[in-house]
């Protein structure tokens, strides 16, 4: 049998082979010690030298050919085998993964943490104060004596004539100043209470108090700190304006508005057509408040501000009913 014929018959026999073991049998049949090609190679010795040379070359070519074909087919079969194995092991990858679906962060807490983060990055520390508070800290030390009309600005829950649920986070100002020498620079997040419940008021809500007193703090600083904060929490291009207002414990006092984020200032229901939304109250700490804790108001000055968390969360997430925050409906909480 010549080299060409060997190749032909090998290819015919290779055609139907579909297993690695069949392939091995075929290899032995051609290339084994007693294989067809091996036998032909042995015959070469009997040929005349001039023929031997060309016949030998031909047979060697065939041998390489067969080896290459076998290797290629082996590779093919191996891949096929693997594919079949994978196919048989396949699972439905669209079934849900196994994990505990994480709980969600309450939007008010989320906003509170975000705001806390912004001020901590600006170098403010975080302070706490009691929620059930002495009338003294909640009012008197903040320049709101008994029988002051400003008490009407905040409907108060009473525990006794001298003990109230704090109506704002501002008493923390006084408690911190009693403990620390200036300069002080802190925020105080927490719950506050007002004896009031309707569509837009809940008897409990959250505030963050901000406070900074040193020997050089100005109203100009207050403006810049609050502008930076509002640009970070809303957006860098939101307009901010300061307008005079009144809080007994700050003088000058300022209400801070941002351009309505819904209508972009053209006027809508949320901003009552004004194009502006009231977002927080602030001002320069009243000298009386400083003097009450023994800070020399001729040397020290500072600013304070209070931000309602629910209000920020409502604006940030377009929530139209404050009461949603306290129902803890998972269809609501799940969205944040």
């Amino acid at each position: 049998m010549g080299g060409v014929n060997i190749r032909k018959s090998f290819l015919q026999e290779l055609g139907p082979v579909r297993t690695i073991s069949g392939l091995e049998l075929l290899r032995v049949r051609y290339l084994g010690k007693k294989g067809i090609l091996t036998a032909e190679l042995k015959k070469l010795g009997g040929l005349p030298p001039e023929e031997r040379r060309s016949a030998g070359a031909l047979l060697n070519e065939s041998k390489v050919f067969i080896e290459t074909e076998l290797a290629a087919r082996r590779q093919e079969l191996k891949e096929l085998e693997l594919r079949e194995k994978f196919a048989s092991q396949a699972i439905d990858v669209t079934l849900p993964g196994r994990y505990t679906r994480p709980g969600r962060t309450h939007p008010v807490i989320r906003v509170m943490r975000e705001i806390t983060g912004i001020f901590v990055a600006m170098g403010f520390s975080v302070e706490e104060g009691p929620e059930v508070e002495l009338d003294y800290y909640n009012f008197e030390a903040l320049n709101i004596p008994k029988e002051h009309p400003a008490r009407e600005m905040q409907d108060t829950f009473y525990v006794s004539p001298d003990i109230v649920l704090r109506t704002h986070t501002s008493p923390v100002q006084v408690r911190v100043m009693q403990r620390k020498k200036p300069p002080v620079k802190f925020i105080a997040p927490g719950k506050v209470y007002r004896c009031d419940a309707d569509i837009s008021h809940t008897p409990m809500f959250h505030q963050i108090e901000g406070f900074m007193v040193a020997d050089d703090i100005t109203f100009s600083h207050l403006k810049a700190v609050l502008e930076s904060f509002l640009h970070r929490i809303f957006s860098p291009d939101v307009p901010v304006r300061f307008r005079p207002s009144y809080f007994p414990f700050t003088e000058p006092s300022a209400e801070v508005d941002i351009g309505c984020i819904f209508c972009k200032g053209t006027g809508c229901r949320t901003c009552k057509g004004t194009g502006w939304i009231e977002i927080l109250g602030s001002g320069m700490v009243h000298p009386h408040v400083l003097e009450m804790v023994g800070y020399d108001s001729r040397i020290y000055s500072g600013f304070a501000f209070g931000i309602g968390m629910e209000r920020v969360a409502m604006l940030k997430y377009s929530i139209d009913d404050i009461r949603l925050f306290f129902e803890n409906d998972l269809r609501f909480l799940g969205q944040f």
Partner: peptide
Amino acid sequence: GYDRIPAALPSSTLSADGAGSRE
């Protein structure tokens, strides 16, 4: 006019307190 008062960040002393361990 509050709007005529310039806004300038305080060149404040750094605080090492941070958020505090309780926070």
